[in-house]
């Protein structure tokens, strides 16, 4: 059974994302991103996080989408 994954966009909020898919915490840690537990994660989007850490946005989103997808 595969659950449909909500599509991630540049404007997706970091806090909401991590709240919904806690398994993504690993990805943020892998890239040494300090978004986890950050008081500003509530305001920042994927686009801003990618810019802050110099990651190409599209690539970052597809990595997150892969990691969020439940195993079939």
């Amino acid at each position: 059974m595969s659950k449909t994954l909500e599509s991630l966009t540049a404007d997706t909020s970091i806090a909401k994302l991590l709240d919904k898919y806690p398994q993504l915490i690993q990805v943020f840690m892998q890239y040494h991103m300090s978004c986890i537990g950050c008081s500003m994660a509530h305001f920042d989007t994927l686009k801003e996080a990618a810019e802050n850490y110099g990651l190409p946005l599209d690539e970052f989103i597809s990595i997150l989408e892969r990691a969020a997808r439940p195993a079939d």
Binding site: S34, C38, M40, F43, D44, E48, A49, N52
Partner: peptide, 15 residues
């Protein structure tokens, strides 16, 4: 207005 929240977090947390 915090224009660059990440910049401020870096200062606050000495990142």
């Amino acid at each position: 207005v915090i224009r660059n929240p990440h910049g401020l977090v870096r200062i606050a947390d000495d990142l």
